[in-house]
């Protein structure tokens, strides 16, 4: 009947997962693991932009949002890094090579790597927050000549809690990236900074007038980070953050991820800070 306007017909059901097989499982630290997946149907690999996420489904257990942590130029290896914290993530941590996962995605907005061209890029993150930023770092390094300084400020509870340690070492060895790591608590052998990642900001080498900052971590951490970046002279338009909320669908139907007017699943997870400034940090929004 005519009261419904003609709608574009969607070829696929946005709620139906595609099956992926685990090719490899790598342990990152005591509770965090990385899975490398390949589509079971042998079809096209999943192209994605750095910062986007997938909904991962563990058979009969549940489905959760997890960022893609792999290299966007190598989409045939779909990579996710997950910290086991609750029901679904713990069930997922028990899966191994050859097991299957349901995947829907990719969803959401991405880090502004085109906007950052010609500028300094400072990445501020902590713990598992490095996972959604790793694809951005891969791309920045692959197109190194397009950017001025690249600075990574990374914090973790202890050295043992850091993820992607081999890569951090490899990046540290490069002369065209500056990496400053810090730990909350020094364990034996740690000779670097002690303190949270935000304490690195005042002295980090970047030009506040010509910098794009990419920030991911717990909300309190991001609040302090934004404040410290503001203090260095960054405008809100130069700061990007990745937000997290409960999500059941990732396509804007379930309502769970609302953050004021924004649906984090489709308007985020990456926001330019001025988009959310009015409500960011407001009590229980």
């Amino acid at each position: 009947m005519n009261t419904m306007s003609a709608e574009p017909i969607q070829a696929v059901d946005p709620m139906a997962p595609r099956w992926y097989r685990i090719l490899q499982r790598r342990r990152e630290n005591h509770d965090t693991f990385t899975l490398e997946l390949t589509p079971e149907d042998g079809g096209a690999p999943m192209a994605f932009a750095p910062g986007q996420f997938n909904m991962l489904y563990v058979f009969g257990v549940g489905e959760i949002p997890i960022s893609i942590s792999g290299d966007p130029s190598q989409p045939q290896r779909l990579i996710h890094t997950t910290r086991a914290v609750g029901t679904v993530t713990k069930a997922m941590s028990r899966l191994g090579k050859g097991d299957l996962l349901g995947v829907r995605g990719p969803f959401g907005t991405s880090w502004p790597l085109a906007e950052a061209e010609g500028k300094d890029v400072v990445v501020v993150t902590g713990g598992i927050g490095l996972a959604p930023l790793r694809p951005a770092i891969y791309q920045l390094l692959a197109q190194r000549e397009k950017y001025a300084r690249i600075v990574l400020l990374y914090g973790a509870r202890t050295q043992e809690d850091m993820v992607f340690r081999r890569e951090l070492e490899r990046w540290s060895a490069r002369l065209d990236v500056e990496i400053f790591a810090t730990v909350d608590r020094a364990t034996s052998g740690w000779r670097g900074n002690v303190g949270v990642a935000t304490t690195l900001i005042p002295h980090a080498p970047f030009d506040p007038d010509d910098t794009i900052a990419l920030v991911c971590g717990p909300e309190v951490m991001m609040r302090y980070t934004v404040a410290a970046l503001e203090k260095r002279g960054l405008e809100h338009e130069q700061i990007y953050i990745s937000m997290e909320r409960n999500m059941k669908c990732a396509v804007g139907f379930c309502g769970h991820c609302q953050f004021g007017p924004q649906f984090i699943c489709k308007d985020g997870p990456v926001f330019r800070f001025d988009q959310v400034r009015a409500i960011f940090g407001k009590w229980e929004v």
Binding site: M1, Q10, V251
Partner: peptide
């Protein structure tokens, strides 16, 4: 609800199939 389920970047196939043929 049409705006929510039919007019965003994604279409809900369940709502769509139920909504499509109704007579009001």
């Amino acid at each position: 609800q049409d705006r929510v389920f039919l007019q965003g970047p994604y279409v809900d196939p369940i709502y769509r199939s139920r909504r499509a043929g109704i007579f009001v």
